[in-house]
Design a binder for these strands. Sequence first.
DNA 1: TTCATAAGTGACGTTATCGTCATCACTGTG
DNA 2: CACAGTGATGACGATAACGTCACTTATGAA
Lengths: 215, 215
Amino acid sequence: MAAIAGSRLDRRKARTRAALIHAAQTFIAEGKTNVAILDITQTADVGMGSFYNHFSSKDELFQAAVEDALDRHGAALDEVTHGIDDPADVFAHSFRLTGRLHRRHPQLSKVILNNGLGLATSEHGLAPRARRDIQSAIQAGRFTAGDAELAFVIAAGAALCLGQLLHTRPDRDDAEATDQIAEDLLRAFGVPADEARQICRRPLPELRCHLSSDR
Amino acid sequence: MAAIAGSRLDRRKARTRAALIHAAQTFIAEGKTNVAILDITQTADVGMGSFYNHFSSKDELFQAAVEDALDRHGAALDEVTHGIDDPADVFAHSFRLTGRLHRRHPQLSKVILNNGLGLATSEHGLAPRARRDIQSAIQAGRFTAGDAELAFVIAAGAALCLGQLLHTRPDRDDAEATDQIAEDLLRAFGVPADEARQICRRPLPELRCHLSSDR
DNA sequence: TTCATAAGTGACGTTATCGTCATCACTGTG
DNA sequence: CACAGTGATGACGATAACGTCACTTATGAA
């Protein structure tokens, strides 16, 4: 009866729901947020009527789809940065990995970018984690920025626009651009220049897959 | 026959077109991009049939509405910064005035934010002006940033997320937050700290109105 | 004054999307 | 094996938005 088991019936329901969410993410990734519900259910390969067993409106589905995508990525970041002590390094790791995500997982990236700024102030997904990391770094004296919220604004904006840049200019080296911006941000937040450079050159761990498609 | 005159008939046509664009901007500002064409024409106080005399689709109208809004703001910025010599100061002026716009002209601000990241890479509107200013500052040796494009990414992202923050947290002082971020950006781009602070405390000129509503 | 043209108008037939509902399929239990 | 419950399904009527078109009004030239 737990969330995991639920045995069969629950699993079937979850599968249908996941198929709908994944279809929605596909459409979002293509910028198509005006698709008909019928199109969504056909893409998800479920019956039209099934839609209303799970969501009462298209907006509700899209919202769930975005939350799903972000929670997956956020959880993956938490997993990877779990053992890092230096808060500045945690921030840098998260930023650099998120920057690399735009090319490695274009669908997830576009889900994020299409919802864009709304996510920056959301209480779910990446924003609260980023705020948490920045706050930690300030409290630990690693960042000297006075206002964590403004530091977050700069970092979030850079992350979003960087994603846009990487999609628009396929010729640009994503890792190089991401690391350069991460370094700039660290300096802007008060980390000494040489140290910022060193942190942003450390090797990065692999991130596990995050989209519902990546079973 | 010039763009200005066109005498009467052209002016009438332009008025109808402007009414449609303004109506579209109103809806965009409310986050309503799914409104029916009939709603738009009613808001614009023109006949339903008139719509197709000017635009062949809703998307076309919305695109025109966004371009209109941005061009107005960009032109206003150019006007105000025309006489400033120091490129870093031009950048700071533009950024600080754009930050203040979010509260002073919420409608225009929301038009920008709703289109969000797409604008950052657009060839029209604010993006090319910002790139131009940053490039000038780098060439003049005022910014030491190596890559103008990455500097632009950080600045554009900060401007957008700042707008989102100011709409989400009405309690925050918009001028203070904007100037603080402008100062952070100048430092990130290589302007000495004390100079950055000084530049971002200079008094600002008034910006003329920019929306088609503000005749 | 008369005519030609450009723009404005809204009613109307067409099309697409919605959301419901009766029914079916699957699951687990007694 | 029969029965109850939960979810899946797609056809269907209702609704809403679309885009056209025949007509009116405004403009400017002859």
